[in-house]
C-alpha cells in the first residue's frame, strides 16, 4: 500500500451518509438477487454451489460493522444530517460565500447546522470581530437549508437532480475537480456544474 495523498479533500457528513446509504441498498439488492438465483438453481435441480463461489457481493464483516454504525451516528437526531438535502447544502455554501469564512469553518457550519449563536461561536474564531451582527444572517441561512424549515427557492434544482440520481457518487467526486471553475462562478445563481462540496475542499496543506 502506498499513500498518494492523505488529504485529497474534505467530505461533509451528508456526503458520507448518502454514500453509505447507497452502498447499503446496493448490498441489500445484491443479497436479494443472490437468494433468488439460489432458489432458481435449486428449483432447476442444480447441485448446490461449492462454498465461497456464491459469496461475492456479500460485504465483509468489517464493512458491514462500520457502515451500520456510521449510518446510525450520522442519522442520529442530534445531528442535522438527515434533515439536509444536496441542494440545501449547495445553496448554503453559496450563501456563506460573502462572509469570508475559511473552508474548515464552512464545513463545520454545514456539518453541525448551528441554530444558536453560541453554536456558531465555537465554530467561527473571533466571531464578534469578523461578523458582528451578521451572525444572525448565517443562522437564518443555515435554518433555511434544513428541510424542516420552509424550503428555499429551488434555484439549483439541476444540481440537485444530478446529485440525487442513483449511482451518481461519481458526480459528487468529479465536482471538485472543477473547483477552480466553481470558485469563479460562486455567485452565479444558475450554479451549473457546482457540487455541494465544491467550496469545502481543502488543498493539501
Amino acid at each position: 500500500m502506498e499513500v498518494v495523498n492523505a488529504r485529497a479533500a474534505l467530505l461533509s457528513n451528508y456526503e458520507v451518509l448518502s454514500l453509505l446509504r447507497e452502498q447499503e441498498s446496493d448490498h441489500l439488492a445484491r443479497a436479494k438477487t443472490a437468494v433468488r438465483v439460489k432458489k432458481e438453481e435449486e428449483a432447476a435441480g442444480h447441485p448446490p454451489r461449492p462454498l465461497g463461489e456464491a459469496t461475492f457481493g456479500e460485504p465483509s464483516e468489517n464493512l458491514r460493522t462500520v457502515e451500520i454504525e456510521a449510518i446510525q451516528y450520522l442519522s442520529a437526531d442530534y445531528l442535522p444530517t438527515t434533515r439536509q438535502t444536496a441542494d440545501g447544502i449547495s445553496q448554503l455554501v453559496k450563501d456563506l460565500a460573502p462572509y469570508e469564512l475559511t473552508k474548515a469553518e464552512k464545513l463545520q457550519v454545514v456539518n453541525l447546522a448551528p441554530a444558536l449563536p453560541v453554536e456558531l461561536y465555537v465554530i467561527v474564531e473571533e466571531l464578534e470581530d469578523r461578523l458582528g451582527d451578521r451572525m444572525e444572517h448565517i443562522l437564518n441561512h443555515v435554518q433555511s437549508g434544513l428541510s424542516d424549515a420552509p424550503a428555499p427557492a429551488p434555484s439549483s434544482s439541476d444540481v440537485y437532480s444530478a446529485v440525487q440520481a442513483p449511482n451518481k457518487t461519481s458526480t459528487l467526486a468529479e465536482s471538485y475537480q472543477h473547483e477552480e471553475y466553481h470558485e469563479e462562478i460562486v455567485f452565479d445563481d444558475v450554479g451549473e456544474g457546482a457540487g455541494i462540496e465544491g467550496d469545502l475542499d481543502m488543498e493539501e496543506d
Binding site: M1, E2, V3, V4, N5, A6, R7, A8, A9, L10, L11, S12, N13, E15, V16, G52, E53, F56, G57, N111, M202
Partner: peptide, 21 residues
C-alpha cells in the same frame, strides 16, 4: 470529520470472481 485519501495498492482477484465486473 471525514476526508478523502488517495491510496495506491495492488489487489488480487480470485478466479471465481472473474465473472463480476
Amino acid at each position: 470529520m471525514f476526508v478523502l485519501s488517495v491510496l495506491k495498492d495492488t489487489v488480487a482477484i480470485h478466479p471465481s470472481n472473474f465473472g463480476v465486473p
